[in-house]
């Protein structure tokens, strides 16, 4: 018997403590945490967030800074519901970042169309922040953002800023009268895209949202002559290890955690229906 003596530094599954800088309630079921994790990452990458005794959950980074990361979280499962209890100064455990994000470097010089639905806007906000930090590298930026209803509007703080800098099109699926002050458009985000997007010249599209929305948007883009390799989608799957071994996130041989979560549509097209 000898001691294996491996240090914790070598363990890829080791969660490490970080401090919460800010907690911000976005909507009744979503919130944004700013965490003191200074790390290099690409927009679209994610981290594994742990709470001892509750478990681990993959959350995409929705910021573009080397000093901190922001995580927009919807309360849907055990871990995310517990994370909602965190406040400034609390400790949270993280590992990452993981996965392949949006290939922003390669896409320099293009016009960008960013389509987000509901909490699918979170990973896209990372790309918007990135564009802000590298504005000269990209052409025209169109943001199409759809929410279920006015009370589901996340990133309301940021929307105003985006309104000034980019072509912003915000839609809500429904607006139950009188509930909220909302003066934007009602309808599906697909309608706005049909109206505003003319052709596919020099354009790439990022889509993240519920599968139904993604399929509908891709349909419209294809009608407008977009090629599959101009479209980038973000996949969501059950995930434990985040390093390509637990296999839960596999989509026909591709791992969402290491080959994704951002896929170019032509690379995943056949498989996504699975």
């Amino acid at each position: 018997m000898t001691n294996t003596g491996h240090s914790q530094e070598e363990n890829p599954l080791q969660p490490r403590p970080y401090r919460v800088r800010e907690y911000y309630r976005e909507t009744p079921d979503t919130f944004t945490l700013t965490i003191d994790m200074a790390v290099d990452h690409d927009p679209g990458q994610f981290v594994q967030v742990s709470l001892p005794g509750i478990g681990e959950s993959p959350i995409s980074i929705c910021s573009d800074s080397r000093k901190f990361i922001k995580l927009n979280i919807r309360e849907v499962g055990r871990v995310t519901r517990e994370l909602a209890g965190l406040r400034k100064g609390d400790t949270v455990f993280l590992r990452g970042p993981y996965g392949k994000g949006y290939p922003m470097e390669q896409l320099r010089g293009n016009d960008l169309i960013i389509v987000g639905g509901g909490c699918g806007i979170a990973p896209l906000k990372g790309t918007i922040d990135y564009i802000e930090n590298h504005r000269e590298a990209y052409g025209e930026v169109n943001l199409f953002i759809g929410y279920r209803s006015p009370k589901d509007i996340i990133f309301s703080r940021e929307l105003e800023e985006w309104q000034q800098k980019y072509h912003l099109h915000v839609m809500v699926d429904q607006n139950p009268a009188g509930e909220f002050c909302y003066d934007g458009r009602t309808g599906f985000v697909t309608e706005a895209i049909r109206e505003k997007v003319q052709d596919n010249r020099n354009k790439v599209v990022f889509i993240c949202g519920p599968p139904v929305m993604m399929r509908a948007v891709i349909g419209i883009l294809q009608e407008k002559g977009f090629n599959d390799d101009q479209i980038f989608v973000s996949a969501e799957r059950l995930m434990f290890c985040a390093i390509g071994v637990c296999c839960h996130c596999m989509i026909k041989g591709k791992f969402t955690c290491i080959d994704g979560p951002v896929f170019r549509y032509d690379q995943i097209k056949e498989d996504e229906q699975e």
Binding site: L13, P52, G53, C241
Partner: peptide, 27 residues
């Protein structure tokens, strides 16, 4: 086959402590 899941198990005496375990899973 190497698929697995990871879960936390806590002790009754102190539900804030316990073990993170991985178990075989199946696709």
């Amino acid at each position: 086959c190497y698929c697995h899941s990871i879960h936390d198990e806590v002790t009754v005496a102190d539900p804030g402590s316990g073990e993170r375990k991985r178990q075989w899973s199946s696709c």
